[in-house]
C-alpha cells in the first residue's frame, strides 16, 4: 500500500463518532437526552436559584395555590412543593444512579466470570436463575422492615436508609446485565484476538480487563440506562408504600405518598412529583432505546 492510497481514505471516523451520529438520528433518544439533562441540571442547580428551604413551614400559607413565590403551591403544612420536588429529585436521582452502579458492577463481574471461566459458569448461572425467581418487591419490603432500625442506629436516619435502599436495589437488579454480559463474553472468548493475546502469555486478568471488557461495554451501557430507570421506580415504589425514606425527608415517591391523602384538596401535590418520576424514567428509557440502536453495528450500518 502506498502513501497516496492512505491519504485518499475517507475522513477518519472513530467508533464514538459513529455511535453519536446514529444516536442523533433517533429523535426520541435525543428528546430524552435533552429532557434528562434538563431534569438533572434543575435538580442540581435549582435549589441555588429557588432558595426556599423545603422544610420551612409557613402555617399561614397552607395548601396555597401556585404563585410566584411558590411555583407549585404549598402543602398542608405550608411547605413549598417546588423546593421539595427539587430536593426529592436529588435523593431519587442519587439513589437511582448509585444503585445502578452497584447493580452494573455486580452484573458485569458475575457475567464476565461466568462467561470466561468455564468452571464458574454452571454455579454462577444457577445462582442468577435463583435470584430471578425471587419475588423482589415483597422481599425488598421485608428486608427494609427488618434492617431499617439497625441501620438507622448505625448511620443516622437518612444515611442509613440511603445505604439500605441502594444496597438492596443494587443486589436485586444485576441479573439481566449478568446474563447479557455472559452471553457476549462467551462469544468473544473464542475470537482470534483473545487467542492471540493468550498465545503470547497474557494472564487472564489482563485479557479480561484489556480485551474482553472494552468489547462488552455497549450492552453494559444499555443496561445502565435501564438500570437507572428501574432503580428510580423501585425507590419511589418503596417510598410510596411508606417503607422508604423517613417522613419529612422528601423523595419523589415519598412526596406522592404524603400527597395521596389530599387528592381532593390539592391534586397538584401528587401531580408534580409523579410527573417528575414519569418524565425521568421515560427520558431514560428513550435514551436506552437510542443507545441500543446506536451501539448495534447491524443497525448502524444501514
Amino acid at each position: 500500500m502506498s502513501d497516496t492510497s492512505l491519504q485518499e481514505m475517507p475522513k477518519a471516523s472513530s467508533l464514538s463518532r459513529d455511535v453519536w451520529n446514529q444516536f442523533r438520528v433517533h429523535r426520541g433518544a435525543m428528546a430524552g437526552l435533552v429532557i434528562f439533562t434538563l431534569i438533572v441540571l434543575a435538580v442540581i442547580f435549582g435549589p441555588m436559584i429557588h432558595t426556599v428551604d423545603p422544610g420551612f413551614m409557613n402555617i399561614r400559607l397552607r395548601n396555597a395555590p401556585p404563585s410566584w413565590a411558590n411555583p407549585m403551591g404549598t402543602d398542608n403544612l405550608g411547605r413549598d412543593i417546588f423546593a421539595q420536588v427539587l430536593q426529592g429529585g436529588r435523593v431519587s436521582l442519587a439513589v437511582g444512579i448509585t444503585a445502578m452502579l452497584l447493580a452494573l458492577f455486580l452484573g458485569a463481574l458475575i457475567g464476565v466470570l461466568a462467561g470466561y471461566y468455564k468452571r464458574l459458569d454452571g454455579p454462577l448461572m444457577r445462582f442468577t436463575d435463583l435470584f430471578l425467581a425471587l419475588p423482589l418487591l415483597p422481599l425488598l419490603l421485608v428486608i427494609i422492615m427488618l434492617f431499617r432500625d439497625t441501620l438507622r442506629q448505625a448511620f443516622g436516619p437518612e444515611t442509613g436508609i440511603f445505604f439500605l435502599i441502594v444496597f438492596i436495589i443494587g443486589i436485586t437488579s444485576w441479573m439481566q446485565t449478568a446474563r447479557i454480559v455472559r452471553g457476549d463474553v462467551l462469544a468473544l472468548k473464542e475470537r482470534e484476538f483473545v487467542l492471540a493475546a493468550r498465545s503470547i502469555g497474557t494472564p487472564s486478568r489482563r485479557i479480561i480487563l484489556r480485551h474482553i471488557l472494552p468489547n462488552v461495554i455497549s450492552p453494559i451501557m444499555v443496561s445502565a440506562t435501564l438500570g437507572v430507570a428501574n432503580a428510580i421506580i423501585t425507590e419511589s415504589a418503596l417510598s410510596f408504600l411508606g417503607l422508604g425514606f423517613p417522613p419529612d425527608f422528601p423523595t419523589w415517591g415519598r412526596l406522592l405518598f404524603d400527597g395521596k391523602d389530599f387528592l381532593t384538596l390539592t391534586p397538584e401535590r401528587v401531580f408534580w412529583p409523579g410527573l417528575a418520576i414519569s418524565l425521568t424514567v421515560l427520558s431514560v428509557n428513550y435514551i436506552g432505546d437510542g443507545l441500543r440502536d446506536a451501539l448495534d453495528p447491524h443497525i448502524r450500518g444501514r
Partner: peptide
C-alpha cells in the same frame, strides 16, 4: 403505538392510579 408502550411502562402504576383517582373520582 411505540409512544403508548413507552409511556405505559415508564409511568409507574402508583402515579397512574392516583391520576385516575384525581380525574375520574374527584
Amino acid at each position: 403505538g411505540t409512544l403508548f408502550s413507552m409511556i405505559g411502562f415508564s409511568v409507574p402504576t402508583f402515579f397512574t392510579g392516583l391520576l385516575f383517582i384525581v380525574i375520574f373520582s374527584v
